[in-house]
Design a protein around this nucleic acid. Structure first.
Lengths: 151, 151
DNA sequence: GCTTATCTGTTAAGTACCTTAACCATAATA
DNA sequence: TATTATGGTTAAGGTACTTAACAGATAAGC
């Protein structure tokens, strides 16, 4: 299986070479939109995004972002102070704190997403349908491999 | 062109949904290897990597990573103190400072890369040849679109 | 039932990395 | 030559992360 081994290695290299670099660019644009138009940082925006996706406790978010629970707790402090998130003790197991978005947070997120989408679409507009489909298939496989399922 | 428009939007969404999340996971592993086995942070490792790829002045690195020149300058300070990088004034235009890796830096990088590759290969070992090829093609297109060419 | 262990989340102290603004040295330009 | 532009550094300040120590709630052992 020397051939497939070589394909695996080449693919690993292509991922390690592309993902961090592409993310540097995309993040730079996301950050500009988040900090320029709205008064939140990119990291705060990501926290809001994950909460909306259903990672709605401190522990969930920490696991999702691979950071400590204390880091999440501090980030939530800021979001609560900004009126974007509410803390709510769970009734079943009162150790848990359920996080919820305020209506204002949803507005901010929608506006920011729209902003980002425009930029992404401009960048990707010149791709062929085949290329787009290839990317979508690849994203599905990568997500399946590297991104843990929802809670 | 409603259909192709829709494919574009779906693909944009898949990228925005996958790249940051996958990167959180990959970065977490890279960081563990860098900080655990060697005495450098992940960001320092990335700087070394970019220098080896030919982004060998402060301005180049700043442009590559989309951060300020002063941030790069500070990062280089640390790497010089650790004996991993040398500064060298360019003779043609003496405003430029050329950065070079020391032999020790190359050793550290090779060891760290080997470490990361093992983990990546484990995660991706169950993919089929077709899936691997799809990913490689997608990475090529994304790199072409989002990652600026070498200096 | 009572004690101990485990789990979730917060607080505190310290570190890494980034930003903007001001600055120096060099090079290009009018 | 005087001015302007460019590459890099320094300084001051902010954000987000870490580990360690802690409080409260639940589970487990006896």
């Amino acid at each position: 299986m020397n051939s497939s081994e070589s394909v695996l290695e080449m693919t690993v290299d292509s991922v390690l070479e592309t993902i961090p670099a592409a993310w540097d660019r995309i993040r730079s644009n996301l950050r500009a939109a988040a900090t320029g138009k709205f008064d939140i940082t990119l990291e705060q925006f990501h926290v809001l995004r994950h909460i909306r996706q259903g990672w709605s406790t401190v522990g969930d978010l920490a696991e999702k972002k691979q950071i400590s629970r204390s880091a999440v707790s501090q980030a939530v402090d800021v979001l609560v102070a900004k009126g974007l998130v509410t803390r709510c003790q769970e009734s079943e197991d009162r150790r848990f704190v359920r996080l919820e978005l305020t209506p204002h947070a949803s507005e901010v997120m929608d506006a920011n997403f729209a902003e980002n989408r425009v930029w992404m679409k401009e960048k990707m507009a010149s791709m062929s349908i085949e290329e787009l489909n290839t990317i979508r298939q690849a994203m599905a496989v990568l997500k399946n491999t590297f991104v843990p399922g929802k809670p």
